[in-house]
Design a protein around this nucleic acid. Structure first.
Lengths: 246, 246
DNA sequence: GCACGTTCTACCATTGAATGGAAGGTGCAC
DNA sequence: GTGCACCTTCCATTCAATGGTAGAACGTGC
């Protein structure tokens, strides 16, 4: 019983509390939060109360905890993705209008594609649900498009550590997919997320010729027409890249 | 020289660091960050490094600090505003289509309206810049619409503490504006932000008859037609409120 | 090329803020 | 009424946090 029996700093604990929220859960019971974050109840309680006083969390009646509006505000007004999203939005809308398909924009975070923006197929932007979602590199066209244009070192490191928990995909298969994506200039993947859809994505290059994002669409298998999709995506991706330079 | 000479906890400092970013600034020099957050350089440096290790911040070469993608992800995947924005989006799009005006959605945060979503006038959603922006209650139609439907106690407290830094607006003027907004069911404000525009906003009521948000439009003075705008806004606001109940 | 200013990074003795078990509330269910 | 599950508060113990200092790494002007 002392300063941190478990040997982690206060910052570690703050992070653990924020990360304890499962994807999509807006609120959590205090006891559950303590359990998920691995903190003693009293410590969790103290931390949550402190964070609540600053608005980073909100502690409601009966120990109901949720992320605070203040935190949302701080993150979104200085969003690290804002410049990218603003540069990409007009082009994403163009794609959406021309192809009438789901359009998405992703960046590489660790060994996963992190989706930072999305326009859904019907009637513009209603569906914003899966923004801030993740997909492993090897089962998303966006992830493949991104990884295929990273440095040799990073790709080697990625392939070296690669392991499919389900054991279906080998490192060699992924290597092949990446090589193909690099050669073709786009990545495609059929029926992984949903058996009836294809994903196609192209890299967005910034001024330094680095792939900083991937622009992709998800189309029903029946409407799959590479000849139409790829040029549109590539044109849009180049446009986004040009915007990023200014 | 001990644990916190300035008498604030680690949590306080973490918050100060995150809040130190001025609106719209995505990155900051370490020294400037230390200055803005009022922390000794070495303390700021240590905190930033710790937060960076968890991805809440990103510490680039040469002390360049920005908010981390991981933080953006955590906040946006468990966004406290998500339910509201999802409920409101279809209706906001309707308004945008029918009226062809800038539409925005705000909630009350302290004595200010916090804008959580916005659709700009031309070509759908390109302009996302001012999302997460704030406006004082008394100079925003959304703020007035929200405050006009809060409890008597809260309104009294607001008016009691009210003080216009520029000294142009008195508490009595605001009281009048609120009374008017409450009676009419909508708030209007001319030429405050931009001399050539009007703002009009209506409250969004949740199942418990509490005003949880405000739906508003900003229109050029020349196109101001209350008869057309208010019913459309009110209809949409009722629709949003109904969605929130489910 | 050298000296200077600025900014980032690392070190480490001091000490008070953080810790968490225990006890006391509170509310709900049976 | 009794039990249970959860939230909240308290407080003696102690080690993690602190920040002055020093040094490294850059850039810049002379």
């Amino acid at each position: 019983m002392a300063n941190s029996a478990s040997g982690d700093s206060v910052v570690d604990r703050v992070v653990r509390v924020i990360e304890a929220f499962p994807e999509g859960a807006t609120s959590l019971q205090l006891t559950e939060l303590a359990g998920r974050s691995g903190l003693p109840l009293s410590s969790a309680h103290r931390l949550v109360r402190q964070l609540s006083e600053h608005g980073l969390l909100e502690l409601g009646v009966g120990g109901n905890v949720r992320l605070g509006l203040r935190l949302w505000e701080l993150v979104n007004r200085n969003s690290p993705t804002l410049a990218l999203r603003q540069a990409a939005m007009p082009f994403m809308e163009d794609i959406q209008q021309v192809l009438n398909q789901n359009v998405n924009l992703a960046v590489l975070e660790g060994w996963e594609a992190l989706f930072v923006e999305r326009l859904s197929r019907r009637g513009s932007v209603a569906n914003r649900a899966r923004v801030a979602g993740r997909m492993p590199v090897h089962i998303s066209s966006a992830g493949l498009a991104l990884m295929a244009h990273q440095s040799r070192e990073l790709q080697a490191e990625y392939l070296q550590q690669f392991h499919d928990p389900e054991g279906k995909v080998t490192s060699d298969v992924v290597r092949h997919l990446l090589a193909e994506a690099a050669q073709l200039g786009y990545a495609q993947l059929a029926g992984v997320v949903d058996p009836d859809t294809w994903g196609i994505a192209v890299p967005v290059m910034n001024g330094k010729r680095r792939a900083v994002a991937a622009l992709g669409v998800v189309v029903p298998l029946a409407e799959m027409r590479l000849q139409a999709l790829v040029p549109a995506l590539q044109t849009a991706a180049r446009g986004i890249g040009r915007q990023l330079r200014d």
